[in-house]
Design a protein around this nucleic acid. Sequence first.
RNA 1: GGGCGGUUCGGAUAGCGGCAAUUCCAUCGCGCUGUAAACGCGACGACCGUUCGGUCUACGGGGGUUCGAGUCCCUCACCGCCCA
Length: 396
Amino acid sequence: MFKILKKDKDTKARLGVLSTPHGTIRTPSYVIVATHAEVKCLRPSDIKKTKTQVVIANTYHLRGKANVHKLLGVKMPIMTDSGGFQVFSLGFGNKFGVGKILRKNTRPVRSRSPLATSSSNGVKITEKGVYFMLDGKKRFLGPELSIKLQEKLGADIIFAFDECTSPLDNYAYNKKALERTHRWAKECLKARKRKDRILFGIIQGGRFKDLRIKSAKFIASLPFEGIGIGGSFGNLPVRPGSSGRAGDEMVETLKWVVPHLPEEKPRHLLGIGRVEDVFNAVEQGIDLFDCVIPTREARHGRIYTKQGHFDIWKYQSTGLALEKRCRCPICKSGVTRTKLHSLFKGDQTTLTNRAKRYATIHNMWFFNNLLEEIRNSIAKGKFKEFKKRFLTKFKV
RNA sequence: GGGCGGUUCGGAUAGCGGCAAUUCCAUCGCGCUGUAAACGCGACGACCGUUCGGUCUACGGGGGUUCGAGUCCCUCACCGCCCA
């Protein structure tokens, strides 16, 4: 159900349309994160105001709950993640304070042992799936069950159950985890009952070129409707040839992987979404990404503009608009930096308080609008030019 | 006039004689990439040196006891409550 409308002449960027039971998604597209089938701080009716085309919820967090469309309260395409990432972020990641992207201040810790079962923070990974604690109870999630639950949740796009490794894990562990992810991929395909759901397989392989290529070829060879690219990236100059600039290894990884993917299948880069990364990923042929940055950073007081982002805490007394000439509903209603600052300073206890709600709407609109502009630039054959112009002005 | 209670880093608070001294708020700085995170981390008397310290100035003012006082004693000032 994916149709490519145009391919960029200078880069691997493509313009496409992905049809789902709940509507079509024009790609490249940002996917707004709604883990618990709600965008934090927003009312359902707010979501439509932000040019959001699709959201992603999480099987791990929604276990046992009913239909995601009902929970979200909006009719639009919804993805569900398989819960595979939580095995990493709540286990190894939480225990060692490591994210999926390596940073300079990351504490050096040992890789996990490639031996079959490893346990971090009560999360135990086995060949059959993963045992973990939730609400004080021991739970299980595996490929077959994840697909079953995702079909029950009723998302339009679902993901295979995979294992995300840490950027600190060594080759041996990644190899083992990749074999597991590949086995699970086949089981996910076998477990699916509903053919009207779009199922994405996920490429892993960590920071290792041969594993990444192997994974790309393998996942591409299976009858998935789309391809996810997951896992961890470093961004330190620890690998020969990497300059150490932020996002470098991500681009490198995409250069290894994308050439082995079928053109006609949509590609989703999981969990990536800084402005610069978005441009780079689109340039490498990515169609979809999801990321918590627009929403989480909004809640933390960071506002995105075409000049870069700024922290609202610093704007006690300027009459400045959030962003000059911004057409988002918040800016159009005349909310200034000073106004938002004072809202952030005020009572934060109500669940949908105005400060965080306004900031979230603004940022979501910013990212969705950026992707719209990117689509327009591809349509006009001017993606490369637009990227350069935008990033020159966007100071981080 | 008498009886208590108080006075600690911007505000509010802790503080059995070993204290540059607790916590909260505020302030400042940093971080946030398939949501553990509608926050997290750090700094917050001054000066000096690299970690780690070092020196000085500090718990209303003054005096005393003590090796050592925010902490005990005396006194003064101010504030609060109660009895006249």
